[in-house]
């Protein structure tokens, strides 16, 4: 498998992962009262997942392989 093809597939997989994590029902699991370090659970969840997703995208985009 060529580098380009495999990188493309990794990106598609990341997009799928994002769609899954930012969607019902996973999202509903975090739609609960309570806080993490003082931040409401839902807000914390969204921003953390978002940041991790971007980090993974950066890794795939910048990796030489």
């Amino acid at each position: 498998m060529s580098d380009f093809a495999s990188r493309g597939q990794r990106f598609v997989a990341l997009c799928m992962l994002g769609l899954l994590l930012f969607n019902y029902p996973i999202l509903a699991l975090f739609n609960v009262p309570g806080t993490v370090f003082g931040v409401p659970v839902l807000y914390a969840y969204i921003f953390v997942v978002w940041a991790v997703l971007i980090a993974l995208m950066a890794f795939v985009a910048e990796s030489d392989r």
Binding site: R7, F11, L14, C15, M57
Partner: peptide, 10 residues
């Protein structure tokens, strides 16, 4: 857009 940009490579 973040999710869409993951597809930008394609």
């Amino acid at each position: 857009p973040t999710l869409m940009i993951a597809l930008w490579w394609v």
